[in-house]
Simulated scan of single mutants.
Amino acid sequence: MHLLHANFTREDESKRTLFLQSLRAAAHEITDEELEVLLESEWRSRLTAAWLIGFDRRDHFRDVLGDLLLASRLCFSGQGYCFALARFGTDEDAQHLAAYLDRYLRRPDCQYDQHWAISALLHIDSRSGSEHAARFLAPGGLWHQWNGAQYSPSPPGRFIYEL
Rank of each mutant, 00 (worst) to 15 (best):
P155L: 15
P139W: 11
Q111P: 00
E36I: 00
P108N: 11
L70M: 10
L23Q: 14
A117V: 01
F136D: 06
Y104I: 12
F8M: 00
L4F: 11
A86P: 08
L39A: 01
H115G: 13
H2W: 02
R106N: 13
L4I: 01
T9F: 05
G140E: 12
N7C: 00
Q79F: 04
V64D: 15
W51D: 03
Q79H: 09
G78T: 09
E33H: 03
R46N: 07
W143M: 15
I30A: 05
L70K: 14
L68P: 00
S128L: 06
L20H: 04
G140Y: 10
T9G: 01
S126I: 02
L70S: 08
L38G: 00
A6S: 04
C75Y: 01
R135V: 12
F83N: 12
W43T: 02
F55M: 15
I118C: 04
A50N: 11
G78P: 04
L39M: 07
D109I: 02
Y112S: 05
C75S: 12
L69D: 05
H123N: 11
G89I: 15
G141C: 08
I124V: 14
G66N: 13
S45D: 12
N7S: 10
L4M: 04
L65W: 07
G66P: 05
S126V: 03
W143G: 10
I118M: 13
G141P: 08
E36P: 00
E33T: 10
R73I: 01
R87F: 02
Y112W: 13
R73F: 03
V64S: 13
W143A: 08
Y104N: 07
R58P: 14
A49E: 04
G129H: 04
A99P: 01
N147I: 04
D102T: 05
T90L: 13
A138G: 06
A6P: 00
Y112R: 15
S45Q: 13
A133R: 07
L68N: 05
C110W: 06
D32F: 01
I53G: 12
A149F: 08
I118A: 01
A26W: 06
A98Y: 00
H96Q: 05
R107H: 14
I160K: 02
S77T: 05
N147G: 04
L85S: 12
S119Y: 01
Y104R: 12
F136G: 10
G141F: 05
Q114S: 14
E162F: 04
Q150T: 14
I160A: 03
D56P: 04
S14V: 10
I124R: 13
H132V: 03
L39E: 00
L69N: 10
